[in-house]
C-alpha cells in the first residue's frame, strides 16, 4: 500500500526558472562592460583592485558561514556582486590591503552581522566605501589617469571659478564630453564610462532585473535640482558633467536599485528615487565634496522602512471602509 503513495505539495506545483543566483549572475554580467573599460583605462592596478575585492568578499562570506556553522551561500553570487561593486567604487591607485579591508567590512559588518543576504539595511559595497572614505580620506580621493594625478570631472567643475565656463575648466585638464562618455577621465574604476554603464543597465532592463522607477526618478529629480540650484542654469555642459562625470550612473542603475536596500513597491521606489535625487543634489552642490552619490544612497537606505510604511498599495477593488 505504501508503495502506491505519491508526493504531495500545496499549490502552486510549478516554479519559475529565475533564481536568486541567476539574478545575481545577471548583475555581474551587467557590470562587466564598465569593469572592462576601467581595466582598459587604468590598466593593471585596476584589475588587481577588482580581483582583490571580489576574492576577499567571497572568501569572507565563505569563512563566516563555515565558522558560524551556517549554510554556505557563496553560490548565490551575491558576495561576488558586492566585491565587484566595491572594487568599482575605489580609485585604481588604492593600496590592495585597503581594498581587502573594505571587502571584509562590507561582508562582515554590513551584511553578515545583520543576518546575511536580504537582511542588511545598507548597501554593503557603499557602506564599505564610506567606511574607507572616512578612514583613508586622502587615498580614497586620490585619482590618477595614465600615471598622472587627475581630478575627476566633477571636482574640476566644483572647483572652477565662476568666471570660467564649464567647457573651459574641463578643457584645461584635457577633458571633453566624449571622454566622459567613453570613460577616459579620472575617477573610480567603474564609474567613468557612461556608455559601458548604460549598456549594462540596458541588459538589466531587458532581463527585467531592474525596473525604471528608481533610476528614472533619481536621475530626473537630480537633474531638476542641478538645473535650479547648480548656478549654471540650463548649461548643457554643466549638466552633462554632473550626469557623466561622477558616480551617478553607477549609483542610479546598479546601487540604488539594490533589491535588499530599496523599497519593494512601485510607489516606494518612486519616493526613494526622488529622495535620492534631492539628497545627491544637496551633497554635490552645497556640500564640501564634489561627490554625493554614495552618501545619498546609504542615507536613503535608512529611510526605506519609513518609505515602505506609507507606500503600501491599495488592493484591487479597494473600497474605503465606513
Amino acid at each position: 500500500m505504501l508503495s502506491k503513495l505519491y508526493r504531495v505539495s500545496s499549490s502552486p506545483h510549478v516554479r519559475n526558472r529565475i533564481s536568486t543566483s541567476s539574478i545575481m549572475k545577471d548583475v555581474v554580467i551587467a557590470l562587466l562592460p564598465a569593469c572592462a573599460v576601467g581595466v582598459a583605462v587604468f590598466r593593471l592596478p585596476a584589475l588587481l583592485v577588482l580581483l582583490t575585492t571580489c576574492a576577499t568578499s567571497v572568501l569572507t562570506e565563505y569563512l563566516y558561514s563555515v565558522l558560524m556553522k551556517k549554510k554556505v551561500t557563496t553560490g548565490d553570487y551575491s558576495a561576488l556582486v558586492t566585491g565587484l561593486l566595491l572594487g568599482m567604487n575605489l580609485p585604481p591607485s588604492i593600496p590592495l590591503w585597503i581594498a581587502a579591508l573594505g571587502s571584509v567590512f562590507a561582508i562582515l559588518v554590513v551584511k553578515e552581522v545583520f543576518g546575511g543576504l536580504g537582511q542588511n539595511f545598507m548597501n554593503p559595497a557603499l557602506g564599505a566605501r564610506c567606511f574607507l572614505m572616512i578612514s583613508f580620506a586622502s587615498r580614497m580621493t586620490h585619482f590618477t589617469l595614465d600615471g598622472v594625478s587627475s581630478a575627476t570631472p566633477l571636482a574640476i567643475v566644483k572647483n572652477a571659478s565662476r568666471s570660467q565656463s564649464v567647457v573651459d575648466a574641463l578643457g584645461e585638464q584635457g577633458i571633453n564630453l566624449l571622454n566622459m562618455f567613453l570613460g577616459y577621465t579620472g575617477g573610480t574604476i567603474g564609474e567613468t564610462s557612461t556608455i559601458a554603464l548604460l549598456i549594462g543597465a540596458g541588459y538589466l532592463f531587458l532581463r527585467k532585473v531592474i525596473s525604471w522607477e528608481i533610476p528614472v526618478t533619481y536621475i530626473g529629480s537630480f537633474l531638476v535640482f542641478a538645473l535650479l540650484f547648480g548656478g549654471y542654469g540650463l548649461d548643457g555642459q554643466y549638466l552633462a558633467a554632473q550626469l557623466c562625470g561622477g558616480g551617478l550612473m553607477l549609483g542610479a542603475f546598479f546601487m540604488a536599485t539594490d533589491y535588499v536596500t530599496s523599497p519593494i513597491t512601485k510607489k516606494g521606489k518612486i519616493i526613494f528615487g526622488l529622495c535620492l535625487g534631492i539628497l545627491t543634489g544637496i551633497f554635490r552642490i552645497f556640500g564640501g565634496s564634489a561627490e554625493g552619490v554614495s552618501y545619498a544612497i546609504i542615507f536613503c537606505n535608512l529611510l526605506v522602512p519609513l518609505i515602505e510604511r506609507i507606500a503600501i498599495p491599495k488592493p484591487f477593488g479597494y473600497v474605503k471602509e465606513k
Binding site: R7, S9, H13, V14, R15, I18, S19, T20, I23, T73, D76, S78, G116, L117, G118, Q119, S211, Y259, V260, S262, I264, T265, K266, E308, I312, P313, K314, P315, F316, G317
Partner: peptide, 28 residues
C-alpha cells in the same frame, strides 16, 4: 519542482508585488 527548490533568503526583489493580481505586498 516544489521539492527540487529549497526556499532561500528573501532578497526583496519585489517580483511578488508586481505579479499579484490583487495588488498586495506578498513579501510583507
Amino acid at each position: 519542482e516544489v521539492a527540487d527548490f529549497e526556499p532561500t533568503a528573501c532578497i526583496r526583489c519585489g517580483k511578488c508585488v508586481s505579479v499579484c493580481p490583487s495588488n498586495l505586498v506578498p513579501q510583507k
